[in-house]
Amino acid sequence: MNFATFDLNLLRVLDALFREGSTVKASARLGLSQPAVSSSLSRLRHALDDPLFVRQGNRLVPTDFAENLRHGVQDELNRIELLLSKADAFDPEKAEGHFKISGSDFFAELLMPNLGDLLTRTAPKVRAQLVDLVPDDYLASLERYDADLALIPDCDLPSWISREPLFRSPFVVIARGSNPGVADLEDFSEIPIDRFCAMPHVLFSPEGQLSAMGDAALAKIGRSRNVAMTVQVFSGVCRVVRGSDLIALIPAQLAVEFKNSYDLRIFKAPMPMDVVQIVGIWHSRSDNAPFARWMRQQVFDLCRSMDMALPT
């Protein structure tokens, strides 16, 4: 390849094809026509002497050669953006771009409506996307550009990850208003341990696991509970509780959000449980990227308003 004659604009097309897996979607991302993107792909194939992508169903899948270029191309484009951008010149009203947030459906309920309202008013050309938070894969998703930010419980993290503490999320017990198992209890009182363990539970578990942090807390005091069902999303847990006599442990913020509309009652758990600290994490390569930094700050400000402590 003759680098002196290589059009560096083609790298933006290559990056968009990596991210979107489609010439149509890449053209929308770049604001170009689909024929223009296809023409650029042909030029890239000629310049690099490789097919770069092969069609698999409706997607373009990178060749091994192209896959080896993926992260290098994205890193270099990020460096050029930082080189040419000034943070104090960032204008959200004129900004265009996509920002992917990896998180559970907790954030679909409590973050995205407020973020949608904020972006509509302040950054109308920005697209925010909430994508699935896959356990044990969120670090890799940040590394391979599948997410720009992940919202997770605090944990040990590698040195290349940046983090920001956001809010505390205590867990509470929920039951439907007509559940006879809690009829004699006052709202926000502590549910008796024997009753809590005997009543059937629905558990939030994206992977279908039959135990979670509540079970670990029970194990510390030599007890266990009756997990009768698992559901992969928090909103589904709430719907199961609304429609049955199952109970559940969920974040207090969600319990309060759904309390009236789902006719839920809220109780304190009978065993000691750590309050979950939620943090935002991202790849440190984006620490100073103006667009990503602005978007993170909007998310962080909204998340901090979710901080909650249980009534005593």
Rank of each mutant, 00 (worst) to 15 (best):
A228G: 00
D15C: 12
I266S: 04
N288W: 14
H283S: 09
E96C: 11
L130W: 06
S205L: 00
A198G: 01
S42E: 13
P153F: 11
A183K: 07
P270L: 06
A269M: 09
V24T: 15
E257Y: 15
P113V: 06
L84H: 08
R293F: 05
V73H: 02
H71T: 15
V13L: 08
A292H: 14
V240W: 10
T312N: 14
V276D: 04
D75L: 06
D136R: 09
A292P: 11
R79S: 13
F196S: 09
I247K: 09
T120N: 14
R70C: 07
L52R: 12
T122C: 01
F90L: 06
A198P: 09
A66V: 05
D91K: 10
R285W: 05
Q74A: 13
E143S: 14
F106M: 06
A140G: 15
P311Y: 06
A16F: 11
N226C: 12
D7E: 08
D88Q: 11
D91V: 06
A252W: 08
S42A: 15
R29F: 05
L185Y: 02
A289Q: 15
S189R: 04
D187I: 03
R59L: 13
L48N: 08
F258W: 01
S85R: 02
V182S: 02
P192W: 07
R195D: 13
A87K: 12
Q277P: 07
Q232N: 15
A255M: 04
G214K: 00
A140C: 12
R304T: 02
R242M: 12
E67W: 11
I174M: 02
A4Q: 15
N260T: 15
P180Y: 04
Q56H: 15
A108E: 13
G21V: 02
V73N: 07
A228K: 07
N114L: 12
L17N: 03
I221G: 01
I193Q: 00
K268F: 05
D49Q: 14
L246T: 01
D156N: 10
H201N: 03
R45G: 01
G103A: 01
D287I: 11
S244D: 09
V299D: 03
D307H: 00
F99C: 03
L130V: 10
E76K: 14
Y145E: 15
A248D: 07
Q209M: 13
W294H: 10
L30A: 02
N288H: 15
V299Q: 00
V275W: 06
V24R: 15
L83Q: 14
A147R: 00
T63M: 09
T120G: 11
C238K: 01
R225E: 01
V231R: 11
L111R: 03
T63I: 04
L185G: 00
P92V: 05
W282D: 03
L185I: 11
G116V: 06
A252Q: 06
F65T: 07
W294L: 10
R265H: 02
D215C: 13
F300W: 13
R176F: 04
I247E: 01
E67T: 14
N78K: 13
G72A: 12
L41C: 05
F90H: 09
V237H: 09
P35C: 09
S40T: 05
M229P: 00
A36E: 05
E67S: 14
R195N: 11
A66K: 04
K220I: 08
D184W: 12
L60K: 04
I152W: 12
P251R: 02
G214D: 03
M213H: 14
E190T: 13
A95Q: 08
